[in-house]
Computed example of a mutant assay.
Amino acid sequence: MSLPQPVPPSWKDLGKSSTDLLQKDYPFHGTALEVKTKTPSNVTFKVAGNRNATGAIAGDIEAKMTNKQHGLTLTNTWTTANVLKTQVELDNQITQGLKLDLTTSIAPSKGMNKSAVLNAVYKQSGFHSRASIDVLKVGSVRSLAFRWGPTFTADTVLGRDGFLVGAEAAYNVTEGRISRYALAAGFNAPEYAVTLHALNDLKSFSASYYHRVSADVEAGAKAVYDPKHTHGGVAIEVGTKTYLDAAAFVKAKINNAGVLALGYTQSLRPGLKASFGLAIDTQKLNEVDPSGPVHKVGMSFVFES
């Protein structure tokens, strides 16, 4: 009798180890501040703000209330762009492994700019499936009128003994056709992972690799072929992460365009983390670009109690 299979990652988390290694903890796009607090009644507040390289400031304030006994979570967010977001989640109440959530957003100053997305996630041994539909999505007709144009999106990942296969498709309800589809395959082991994606109706492809070399060193790489954005070539990025001690680590990555990025993260004390990032275009060390800075530097601070 074979052992039960673990729940595989969701479609969006295929290749997550490599993506996190190459994308997270590089705050070179500006200065960010995040403050999280939690009350004894399980209400979490988060205030986040970011100032990018051009000086523009964006932020949001979020309140999350959780009732674990009834599997209910309510999240409200208000952004500096005057967008109000609400998310209601119901987990493991209708049947084990099923999670439902309704996410709505509205911009009061922009009239028709609103959405209501209904999501469903179902997880079992060796199976992970998601589905969503924006019931308020509106499309224009000849720029004079409007029509309902919801799109139903679904994806499924199957896993067995570390092997993963997945597929995603989007169905335009109004036009009665599949508007987007993609496939993926991979293998996950405790110390390494390989993932292949065929996206955009199987017209663009990516391959990612992650390896935990030792307890203190991680390495990864990603290659992307997209005829619309890579000009017939392949975009390649490689990176590594090294833990200096239990409270600090450094990261470095470089791509085939010659952009070198460095990141340093330090836990200053429990609940306080600081990150610093630097991006250098090695092909433009002595150039000045009037459209914006060639090299970038930034930092991020996270307070949590």
Rank of each mutant, 00 (worst) to 15 (best):
residue 203 K to Q: 09
residue 119 N to Q: 04
residue 21 L to E: 02
residue 89 E to M: 09
residue 195 T to R: 07
residue 181 Y to I: 01
residue 25 D to K: 03
residue 115 S to R: 12
residue 1 M to V: 15
residue 41 S to F: 15
residue 232 G to A: 07
residue 231 H to I: 15
residue 246 A to G: 12
residue 102 L to A: 12
residue 69 Q to P: 04
residue 288 V to P: 00
residue 28 F to A: 13
residue 290 P to G: 04
residue 273 K to V: 15
residue 50 N to V: 04
residue 11 W to I: 12
residue 277 G to E: 05
residue 184 A to T: 01
residue 199 L to G: 14
residue 49 G to I: 03
residue 61 I to E: 06
residue 250 V to L: 14
residue 111 G to T: 14
residue 73 T to I: 06
residue 270 P to G: 04
residue 173 V to N: 09
residue 225 Y to G: 04
residue 169 A to N: 03
residue 223 A to Q: 02
residue 193 A to Q: 01
residue 288 V to Y: 03
residue 8 P to I: 14
residue 15 G to A: 07
residue 151 T to E: 10
residue 64 K to F: 08
residue 116 A to I: 12
residue 269 R to Y: 10
residue 113 N to R: 13
residue 56 A to T: 01
residue 43 V to L: 08
residue 293 P to H: 14
residue 167 A to F: 03
residue 216 D to H: 08
residue 264 Y to A: 11
residue 241 K to D: 03
residue 295 H to N: 08
residue 266 Q to G: 07
residue 103 T to P: 00
residue 274 A to D: 02
residue 133 I to T: 06
residue 147 R to Q: 13
residue 143 S to M: 07
residue 303 F to E: 00
residue 245 D to W: 06
residue 205 F to L: 11
residue 286 N to W: 00
residue 102 L to W: 09
residue 166 G to M: 01
residue 232 G to C: 08
residue 255 N to C: 13
residue 173 V to A: 10
residue 236 I to M: 15
residue 79 T to Q: 00
residue 299 M to P: 03
residue 271 G to I: 08
residue 150 P to W: 14
residue 60 D to E: 12
residue 69 Q to K: 06
residue 119 N to E: 00
residue 84 L to S: 02
residue 305 S to E: 11
residue 120 A to L: 11
residue 178 I to V: 15
residue 147 R to N: 11
residue 174 T to P: 06
residue 47 V to E: 00
residue 232 G to K: 09
residue 155 D to S: 10
residue 60 D to R: 02
residue 85 K to Y: 05
residue 261 A to E: 04
residue 154 A to E: 01
residue 208 S to E: 13
residue 139 G to C: 09
residue 186 G to M: 05
residue 63 A to N: 02
residue 86 T to Y: 00
residue 265 T to Y: 07
residue 5 Q to N: 01
residue 252 A to F: 12
residue 135 V to H: 14
residue 146 F to M: 10
residue 221 A to I: 01
residue 279 A to K: 06
residue 107 A to F: 01
